[in-house]
């Protein structure tokens, strides 16, 4: 059985090659959502350098990216996140509710509702805007195909949905029925519901499906940079939502691991001019007034409303996205 021995030896060799763990001095795990990859890649390096200069300690920052809801669930189920930087406050609330991982007042701990940068929802259309899409009303016209991910599985898609709702509600001077009707019509024009924001962008750009993509502002800029300025352009609607992606230290995890100091410094660094500069570079709207000023011409001005219009995320989730909520009612059987 010579071959058997050979296989065994090869297996053992592979095993030794594969088992060689690397342990850094101190490790920080940032669990984040999809569109922040490029930003945090750069920010992590900047912070590691800053921390080394300040304290002389080396810190290795690990990043995990995925759909916001899925990431929150992983943390609840035991993914050892020191900090979470997610797409919406509801997902961090879930950490409080389902895991008791941080205090209920987490959002008051850092400035600006614990969201160091903001974004909004804009339209991405094909170059030259062949369908002449200008504002939300154009999206519900017959024959227009809208690409947006599934709000049930994507945090960004929930912002899309609420932006549309908020516009319609404002236009019909507060009528919930009119808003519901508008959103129903909009989703009737959606041919593909991807599970995540990045998947929707790929469907729109690479597969050539649809006339308009609803996207995070930073995602729209990134898509143009990465996938072709000659193919796409951004249309800014008259009104949209102020998306506030929140950040928080996961109290229970940092206390167990003894990483509270570095975790807090990490999030605070987001609010420094250096951090804000990087955020702006990756098309997140900075919060610090002087930087907001500096990058004012980079970001279009439009009327923005925020989540309080919907009574906060808990309320919005319950009314619109929970099982049997308004979004489910759009997809009635037999339609």
């Amino acid at each position: 059985m010579k071959w058997f021995k050979r296989v065994a030896i090869a297996t053992a060799a592979l095993a030794t090659l594969a088992v060689s763990p690397v342990w850094g001095n101190s490790q920080l795990l940032n669990v984040s959502y999809d569109p922040t990859r490029e930003f945090y890649k750069e920010f992590n390096d900047a912070f590691a350098k800053h921390w080394k200069d300040q304290t002389g300690e080396a810190v290795e920052i690990k990043a995990s990216h995925g759909g916001s809801g899925k990431q929150a669930r992983s943390v609840i189920d035991g993914l050892d996140a020191d900090v979470v930087t997610l797409a919406l406050a509801y997902d961090i609330d879930a950490l409080v509710e389902n895991g008791n991982l941080l205090s209920k007042e987490w959002q008051a701990k850092l400035p600006y509702n614990s969201s160091p940068y903001t974004s909004t929802i804009v339209f991405l259309v094909r170059k030259g805007n062949p369908k002449g899409i200008k504002d939300w009303d154009d999206l519900i016209k017959p024959g227009i195909q809208v690409i947006t991910p599934n709000p049930k599985t994507s945090g960004g898609a929930r912002w899309n949905y609420l932006a549309a709702w908020g516009y319609a509600e404002g236009k019909a001077s507060g009528s919930q029925d009119a808003a519901k009707d508008f959103v129903s019509k909009l989703y009737k024009n959606v041919p593909v519901l991807d599970t995540g924001a990045r998947g929707a962008t790929t469907t729109f750009v690479q597969r050539g499906i649809g006339d308009v993509l609803l996207a995070w502002e930073n995602e729209a800029f990134l898509a143009i940079n990465e996938l072709g300025p000659d193919k796409l352009e951004i249309v800014v609607p008259s009104v949209s939502i102020l998306a506030e992606p929140p950040v928080a230290v996961v109290d229970k995890n940092v206390d167990r691991k003894g990483t509270r100091k570095v975790a807090e410094a990490y999030l605070t660094y987001l609010y420094t001019p250096e951090g804000q500069e990087l955020a702006a570079k990756h098309y997140y709207r900075p919060r610090l007034p002087q930087l907001a000023q500096k990058y004012a011409d980079r970001f279009p001005t439009l009327t923005l409303f925020d989540i309080t219009k919907f009574g906060g995320w808990q309320q919005a989730q319950k009314t619109h996205f929970a099982d049997g909520g308004v979004f489910d009612q759009i997809y009635k059987p037999g339609q």
Partner: peptide
Amino acid sequence: VIFIAGNMPM
């Protein structure tokens, strides 16, 4: 499947 299905409810 999720890439090719379209994932439309119902």
